[in-house]
């Protein structure tokens, strides 16, 4: 555990909690892509199946349970509790165009051709692009609530910090996982455009709105 890994995990946790609190406090999931949240629930489910087979640490196990629990709570709030506020008309990204090719890729490029390893690989690939329905929704409506942009910022920051963590681990532990690194780079790149808008607009007190 190094500082980048820890702050990465905390940033990830912050993002998840910010989103849950936003929905809970405003009693609304307007502007949130339910499709992205379903993909994240799928990511955590397929990645953390090793909860059933191996124990790494109390930290590891509790964080996995928190992530999975929060992901399903978010999906429940969007599709059940606050369904009336869900903006499905703007959440039109075709997720099958992500899930199907990524499923195929996970079969072809993995560390080990075993069910758990293939599902883990699938989750890594899927996570890298799971935010696309959300970004697509924002580009469609042309705007995002400020609290939603904080969510996206912490969610993007998390994988960027993991990249630092992997550089650290490569130098100091010789640890190297090509699948995670490539997917992590892709994932971080997808947020770059958003990071730019966040710094130039949101941090200066303006609402994030895209030019028409």
């Amino acid at each position: 555990m190094n500082i980048f890994r820890l702050t990465g995990d905390l940033s990830h946790l912050a993002a998840i909690i910010i989103l849950l609190l936003k929905i809970w406090k405003t009693r609304s999931c307007a502007g949130i892509s339910g499709k992205s949240q379903i993909l994240f629930a799928l990511v955590f489910t397929t990645r953390y199946l090793d909860l059933l087979t191996s124990f790494i640490s109390l930290y590891n196990t509790s964080m996995k349970f928190i992530y999975i629990g929060c992901a399903y709570a978010t999906v429940y709030m969007i599709y059940a509790k606050f369904k009336a506020t869900y903006d499905g008309n703007h959440d039109t990204f075709r997720v099958e165009f992500l899930v199907v090719p990524i499923g195929g890729l996970a079969f072809l490029v993995n560390h080990d051709f075993s069910p758990l390893e293939i599902l883990w690989t699938f989750s890594i690939y899927l996570e890298s692009v799971a935010i696309l329905p959300q970004l697509f929704m924002i580009s469609k409506t042309g705007e995002a609530e400020t609290i939603t942009t904080h969510y996206l910022f912490f969610l993007g920051l998390y994988r960027a910090l993991y990249l630092m963590n992997w550089i650290w681990r490569f130098y100091f532990e010789g640890f190297f996982d090509m699948i995670a690194i490539v997917a992590g780079v892709v994932q971080t790149i997808l947020y770059c455009d958003f990071f730019y808008l966040y710094v130039t607009k949101v941090l200066k007190g303006k609402k994030l709105s895209l030019p028409a």
């Binding site: 890994r5 995990d9 990830h12 640490s57 996995k64 560390h111 080990d112 883990w120 996982d177 995670a180």
Partner: peptide, 10 residues
């Protein structure tokens, strides 16, 4: 060489 990685990361 076993390439499988210990999943200590989240």
């Amino acid at each position: 060489e076993d390439e499988a990685v210990a999943k200590d990361e989240l």
